[in-house]
Each structure stands twice: as C-alpha cells, then as structure tokens.
Amino acid sequence: MAREQARLLRQAIHRAGIARDQLWLHYFSLGGEAGEIEVDAYLHQSFALPPFQRDLLAHAANELIARIPRPRAPYVSDLVDGDNAAED
C-alpha cells in the first residue's frame, strides 16, 4: 500500500507541475518530519515513511494542487463589460 501511495503521489504532483522541493517545503511547513532527501526517496519508492507522514505529504500535495488555477466556463460578466452587456 505504501508503494502504491508513493507512486500515485508522484504521478499527481507530476501532472500538476509541482516540483518535489515545492512539495517538501509545503509538507515541512505543515509539520512534516521527513527531510527533503527522504521525501524524494519515498517518491521513488525506495524509502518507507510512517502512515501519518505519508498522509501529510498527500495533504500537502492536495493543498498545492487546489491552488492551481484551472480553466472554467465563463459567465457573461467575464466576457463583456457590465455596462455594455447585450443579449445574443
């Protein structure tokens, strides 16, 4: 289970464009106890972290992913000046 969690975490941060050092810094700021080298080794499935630290890493990644602006469908007010709004 730990190896799969590490693999999926590495995949998620890669897809989101989050650098490992950025993940580690955010994880550390949340109280993470593993060093940057240990986190990198964990992401490569060559170092074991306790379940709480793994979940804290996942939480840090999810917070960083949530901050990434995503495309969204525009509202009329996003497309036209409110004073000149016209119906199509």
Rank of each mutant, 00 (worst) to 15 (best):
Q45M: 11
L49I: 07
A41R: 04
L25F: 12
Y75M: 01
Y42T: 02
D78K: 00
V76N: 00
A86Q: 07
G17A: 03
V80I: 02
R70F: 07
D55P: 01
A19M: 06
Y27P: 02
Q53V: 04
N62D: 15
G17R: 03
H26W: 09
A85I: 07
L49W: 09
D78E: 01
A85N: 00
Y75P: 00
A58C: 11
R70V: 09
F52H: 10
W24L: 03
W24H: 14
L8D: 12
P51W: 09
E38R: 06
A12M: 06
N84D: 14
N62R: 14
H26G: 04
A34C: 09
A66E: 12
L8K: 13
V80W: 00
A2P: 10
I68S: 05
H14G: 09
I18H: 00
A61S: 12
Y42V: 01
A85Q: 01
A12S: 11
D21L: 14
L64A: 08
D21V: 15
Q53F: 06
D81E: 11
I13R: 10
L64C: 04
A19D: 14
S29I: 10
V76Y: 03
A85P: 00
D55W: 02
G31M: 03
E87K: 05
F52I: 05
R54Y: 02
S29E: 15
Q22W: 02
V39I: 10
A6F: 09
A48W: 15
A34P: 09
D21W: 14
E36R: 12
Y75A: 08
Q5A: 15
F47W: 10
R67L: 08
L49D: 08
A41N: 12
E36T: 07
S29C: 08
R70Q: 13
L30C: 12
A34T: 05
L43H: 01
R20N: 10
G32Y: 08
V80A: 07
R10W: 00
E63P: 01
P51Y: 08
A86S: 06
L57N: 04
A34R: 10
A85C: 00
W24N: 07
A41W: 06
I18Y: 01
A86R: 11
G35N: 11
L30M: 14
L23C: 06
L43E: 02
L79Q: 12
E38L: 08
G82I: 13
H14T: 11
A66C: 04
D83W: 11
D55T: 05
